[in-house]
Amino acid sequence: MRARIAAALAALALGWPAAAGAQTAAAPAAAPAKCADDPAYKQLDYLLGTWDVTSLAGKHSAVVRLEKALDGCGIAQTWDADSGVGSGRGMFTYSRLMQSWHYLWVTNAGGTSYTRGRPDRPNSVLLVSNYPLPGGGERLRHVIFTLVAENRLQETAWWSEDGGKTWTNEFDLWWVRRAK
């Protein structure tokens, strides 16, 4: 019985009311558009490509590849750090339910992060995360990807430990898209 209840709750959480045993009087909803055909899943297409990543001072730090994945439902990221440490993989995906972007990041050193966000203007996305601090409280983190020219992107991160009253710059990176 518990297994059936857990399965029904999981089905509801995934938006499958019929599978959860819910009764509906209305006709079944049309199948959602394929991700590749849905404009929402194309909002971050400006990130696609292979990029050289440098500090603002010009020191090269990584090569990043972003490509469509899972029939256009995600954007897979491969970050190859020059030093080897901090190399990682990430996945961006759009949630129709939440109407926002979600990103999960994992490094070869065991680091992970999860962010969520929305485009804040054309060719720019603001991703937000909250992390607990060891002594209590939390760190609010904003990461912004902005296309500043056709083949040039700026990635900036800021954090606040006072609920957003004051902000500290964590990093600024330039991405330059490689020719195809």
Rank of each mutant, 00 (worst) to 15 (best):
A3C: 02
A3V: 04
A6E: 15
A7Q: 11
A7F: 09
A8G: 05
A10S: 14
A10H: 14
P17A: 10
A20Q: 08
A20T: 07
A22Y: 06
A22N: 07
T24H: 14
T24F: 07
P28D: 04
P32I: 01
D37H: 13
P39E: 12
P39C: 11
P39I: 11
Y41I: 08
K42T: 13
Q43M: 12
D45T: 09
L48D: 02
V53K: 02
T54L: 06
K59W: 13
H60F: 14
H60T: 07
S61C: 10
A62G: 04
R65N: 04
L66F: 03
E67H: 09
A69T: 02
G72M: 06
G72D: 05
C73R: 01
Q77F: 01
T78L: 08
T78V: 08
R89D: 07
M91C: 11
M91A: 10
Y94G: 05
S95D: 07
R96L: 07
Q99A: 13
H102Y: 07
A109Q: 12
G110I: 05
G111L: 02
T112R: 08
S113W: 00
T115Q: 07
T115F: 06
T115R: 06
R118G: 05
D120G: 07
N123Q: 14
S124P: 07
L126Q: 11
L126W: 06
L126F: 06
P134T: 03
G137L: 00
G137R: 00
R139N: 00
L140T: 09
R141E: 01
R141S: 06
R141Q: 08
V143F: 12
F145W: 15
T146I: 11
T146L: 09
Q154R: 13
E155Y: 04
D162K: 06
G164I: 01
W167F: 11
N169W: 10
F171Y: 15
D172E: 12
D172P: 00
